[in-house]
Design a protein around this nucleic acid. Structure first.
Lengths: 151, 151
DNA sequence: TTTGAAACAGTATTAAA
DNA sequence: TTTAATACTGTTTCAAA
């Protein structure tokens, strides 16, 4: 789907605060509320906007430990197999297969170090996992909700 | 701040869809709309909920290339210095200082491979950066907006 | 096609109990 | 906490650019 500059402005405003009313968004970009609604509907139908969520502070919710985990898998493990396995852990907030030595990279949150270790053990015990290598997050520097539209 | 099970249910429902009305959330957990609003207000004031955003599909917006970048910095670079530097790049969607050999891990999105390379060069050219090491994302497996409340 | 104005229904918000 | 009153907002319709 094709986005014009008004669409990108709408997205940028909603990334900042998705609770803004159509009227307010419209006032900022020179459009009526109904015109904004139509564009938002189109952006949702077209798949650019996939939903609306709350932004949470992990530490305020009790997630005090965070880390990146590289997964080294046994020969030719399908991405779908990895996905199904990690999907069962709510602690895994991000997972991708990657180029390089490792097969996948996960981002994991845990309530404390013991919990982190337990999750790591459970993931390492999956039949397709040969080994894991993990680093702990020391300070979160930047956590953008989503990338804004390019250019 | 302390969360009871109703708070965690409210958060879980809003993570799924932040556009649900207070009345709908209330109906699902057995509370009136105004009671839900009061709790959401309290969760925002307490910092557990930091805002409301749209969930975007990066590929639908033209971000086709994604990767992890490890940053190796010169002796004793303060986290704040790294943050200030990477904050200027909208392509950096996530950054943390980490334990292990590298000093920081970034997640970067780009419109194409050439763009990814350009961003990598610009970051590598920062005075405090000794070298970078990056892996490309092959398939995104899981992208949870936020971690739900623990337990 | 895409827009703005109007009308209605639904929701947020506040005050009161 | 609920209920109830009010103001706003979402949503649809329709006519116009």
């Amino acid at each position: 789907m094709q986005l014009d500059h008004l669409d990108t402005e709408i997205i940028a405003l909603l990334v900042e605060d998705a609770r803004r009313s159509y009227a307010e968004v419209g006032a900022r970009i020179g459009l009526s509320a109904s015109a904004v609604k139509r564009r938002v509907d189109r952006l949702r139908a077209g798949g650019a906007i996939t939903g609306f969520t709350v932004r949470l502070d992990p530490s305020a919710l009790g997630w005090t430990v965070e880390g990146y985990v590289e997964l080294y898998c046994r020969n030719s493990t399908a991405p779908a197999v990895i996905r199904r396995a990690v999907d069962r852990f709510p602690e895994v907030v991000d997972a991708s297969t990657v180029s390089g030595d490792a097969d996948a990279v996960l981002r994991i949150v845990a309530t404390d170090m013991r919990h982190f270790e337990q999750v790591l053990e459970q993931i390492g015990a999956q039949p397709f996992v040969a080994r894991t290598k993990s680093v702990l997050v020391l300070s979160p520097l930047l956590r953008r909700a989503s990338a804004p539209p390019p250019h």
